[in-house]
C-alpha cells in the first residue's frame, strides 16, 4: 500500500492538530466514492430527500431513507466510517418511485450523504449530520 503525501502530512501533524484542519483534508475516501459515482460532475441540491434521525441511540442500526423522483440511481455514503460506501440503489423499470429505505451502521457522529444520478445525467446531493450517542450506563 502506498502512502500518499497527504497521509504523510497528516501523520506528521498528529491527530489533535489534524482535527482543526478543514473537512476536505479528511474527505479523501468520501471524495473518491463521490468521484467514482459522478465522474467529478457538479452536484445540485434540489430534488433529493435524505431522511435520517438527528440522534441515533446506537450506531449499529440507523434507519435511513432516500428519495429522488426521476433518479436512475442513488448513492448512500457514511462519510465518517472507515469506508464510506453504504449502498447504491439502482432503480429499474418497475420501480414505482425512486425511494428506498434501509438500515446502516455508523461508526460515530458524522455526515450521512446521498447523491442521486438523475435521468438527464445530472447529479444532486443531500447531507445530514447524524449524532451517534454512546456511553453512559447503557454501555
Amino acid at each position: 500500500m502506498t502512502i500518499t503525501r497527504r497521509q504523510t502530512f497528516m501523520m506528521a501533524l498528529g491527530a489533535t492538530v489534524a482535527a482543526a484542519m478543514p473537512f476536505r483534508a479528511f474527505a479523501n475516501a468520501t471524495e473518491d466514492s463521490v468521484a467514482a459515482f459522478t465522474g467529478g460532475a457538479e452536484m445540485g441540491t434540489e430534488g433529493l430527500t435524505l431522511t435520517a434521525p438527528e440522534i441515533a441511540e446506537n450506531g449499529n442500526t440507523v434507519p435511513v431513507e432516500v428519495s429522488a423522483p426521476g433518479a436512475v440511481a442513488i448513492l448512500l455514503l457514511a462519510t465518517g466510517n472507515p469506508t464510506p460506501d453504504a449502498a447504491i440503489f439502482n432503480f429499474g423499470p418497475l420501480a414505482a418511485s425512486q425511494m428506498a429505505s434501509t438500515r446502516i451502521r455508523l461508526a460515530k457522529t458524522q455526515n450521512v450523504m446521498a447523491i442521486a444520478k438523475m435521468a438527464d445525467g445530472s447529479f444532486v446531493q443531500a447531507t445530514q449530520e447524524v449524532k451517534v450517542t454512546i456511553g453512559g450506563c447503557g454501555g
Partner: peptide, 8 residues
C-alpha cells in the same frame, strides 16, 4: 434525565 448520553 440523562446519564452522559443515555436517556434514563
Amino acid at each position: 434525565n440523562y446519564i452522559r448520553a443515555d436517556h434514563l
